[in-house]
């Protein structure tokens, strides 16, 4: 019975199938990232077994365990197989720098990076779309020109430079906390204050991260809007004497926003990559900052795990974008 029901659910629910299919497609992609990562790891100078042996805090058993786990005494292709299997088991190896298995460090960092990227992502869309519409409606007026000028500036301003300037101004005014993710007494706050605390800490990195994307997205939105506004059906609606607001919000907006949804995934991955640098500058305890420490200390398993996780977040972003696209745009069917 239960099986029947499940099957029925699956059949009737195209969305579910679609998501499953997308998930299946991501598997070879993840494999590909793993391969790239592994090649990089092979290229990296230095033998990690030696590094492990030189560390007095590693027991013989631990070294043997990892040697066996990663088949480090076997030929390279076998090592890759072992590496792959371990990846699937979420076994990422041992961090020399922190003296613990990588898995124990990486989880929290992954989440922190994710919420920072997500916040800037939401900020980007919440600002860029209205701005693009506004600019399109006021085409070639002063406000439009100004927005376009500022978007050039925003696009060309390196995000790290912007973050540095923000930090400087925040230090002058003291309105926002600087660096890190939590205030000192975060633990004592209730859940609501906790969120507020994190949001305040997030403000500078998220804004610094979003400025470039807002500028870019705004330009695309403006272009789309202008194109739609020039189309026949809008002109017809105008001729029919429909009020301006109704034309804009009811007819034009929908058609202008839809093509943007395809950009969702792309935007998200861009933010993810940009977030790494911003994390470092703003001391945000995320994956990028962790990876920098790992690179500096040649903590090779940690580097590779961070990279895998970066790729993983990218895939999640893409997947979410695809789902959103399928939801919004009825022309896309779930197959």
């Amino acid at each position: 019975m239960a099986l029947d029901k499940t099957l029925k659910f699956v059949r009737s629910n195209g969305m579910f199938l679609y998501v499953m299919k997308r998930l299946l497609i991501s598997i070879p992609m993840l494999l590909a990232i793993a391969l790239l990562t592994f090649i990089l790891m092979q290229m990296t100078p230095g033998d990690y077994l030696d590094t492990m042996r030189m560390n007095p805090q590693m027991s013989e058993e631990t070294i043997e365990y990892y040697q066996k786990l990663y088949q480090l005494d076997q030929p390279v292709w076998k090592q890759f197989g072992a590496w792959l299997i371990n990846m699937c088991k979420l076994e990422f190896g041992y961090s020399f720098h922190y003296n613990v298995p990588v898995t124990k460090i990486i989880g929290g960092r992954l989440f922190n990076t994710f919420i920072l990227s997500l916040a800037s992502f939401l900020l980007t869309w919440a600002v860029a779309i209205p701005l693009g519409i506004w600019a399109a409606l006021n085409r070639n007026k002063f406000s439009d020109r100004f927005i376009q000028f500022m978007s050039y500036v925003g696009l060309s301003m390196p995000s790290f430079f912007l973050a540095m300037i923000f930090l400087y101004f925040a230090s002058q005014t003291g309105v926002l906390p600087l660096g890190g993710m939590y205030g000192p007494n975060h633990e004592d706050l209730n859940w609501f204050q906790k969120i507020w605390d994190v949001m305040r800490h997030m403000a500078i990195p998220a804004v610094a991260l979003s400025v470039g994307s807002i500028a870019g997205l705004q330009r695309i939105m403006r272009g789309n809007m202008l194109e739609v506004l020039g189309q026949k059906y809008i002109l017809t609606a105008k001729a029919k004497g429909l009020p301006q607001n109704r034309i804009v919000y009811h007819h034009a907006l929908r058609n202008a926003v839809n093509p943007m949804i395809t950009l969702l995934g792309y935007e998200f991955s861009g933010l993810l990559s940009g977030a790494a640098l911003i994390e470092i500058i703003c001391s945000w305890p995320g994956l990028g900052a962790l990876m920098l420490t790992a690179v500096r200390s040649k903590d090779i398993y940690l580097v590779m795990a961070s990279m895998m996780m970066g790729g993983f977040l990218f895939l999640i972003g893409n997947l979410l974008a695809d789902i959103a696209l399928a939801k919004v745009d009825p022309r896309i069917r779930y197959d």
Binding site: L40, S273, V295, V303
Partner: peptide, 11 residues
Amino acid sequence: MVPGFYLLLAL
């Protein structure tokens, strides 16, 4: 597919 800055650091 790998976010650029991560790849940059790994390389």
